[in-house]
Amino acid sequence: MRYTEFTPFDLWLLTQGLGVTIGLFLATSLLGVLIGVVWGVIRFYRVPVLTQLITFVSEILKNSPVLVQLFLVFFGFPGLLKMNVTPVTAALITLSANTAAFVYVIAVSAIESIGRDQIEAARVFGLTRWQVLRHVIAPQAAAFSIGPLTALLVNQLQVTSLISVIGVMDLAKIGANLNLRTLKPFIVWTAVGILYYLAAKLVAMLGSALEKRLRAHSAFRGL
């Protein structure tokens, strides 16, 4: 005999799943943005070989399915590198790298969006390349990239659902388990869908609030 009815405990399970999803999303986003920005800076300094390597890796990561990347890390790495990869580690590595690949593109275009004349003027004033990056480029690039970055993160939040395939107990996995137990797919997947939708909306809202703030210096103030 099995419980086919929904119990109040299912709500707690869904909350837990949502927590895992959001936790992994935050961790991988943070790591991904950091790595992606570092890659962008490496390109800004035109480090030979490394720049080409990063561009190649980012192209591969952008143009292949995340599911395959997950399988490569989760099933492929243990055999090759003789290391133990738990589902959560595999999820962290894959999602961070994938986010980094997209952040890299955003970072590059944000850095390139700043007019050459500004950089030349700053150089003429005797600022070092780092000072130019830190005080001239970074603030403007941040404001420029926050829009695309929000869109990317909303997308990455949905990509996290794929980690359920390798067994991480995230929201999608909890949904799959509830579905198997209750056999009420419409209710279960609708509930899971709504939770994902709300989380995505929250990310989008925070992103646009941050964008408004970062763009405040260039916003039209009125006469």
């Binding site: 909303v154 949905q158 990509v159 659902s161 794929l162 997947w189 994902y196 939708y197 995505a200």
Partner: peptide, 8 residues
């Protein structure tokens, strides 16, 4: 656009 494809 805001619900993961897997869930759909």
């Amino acid at each position: 656009r805001n619900i993961p494809f897997l869930v759909q």
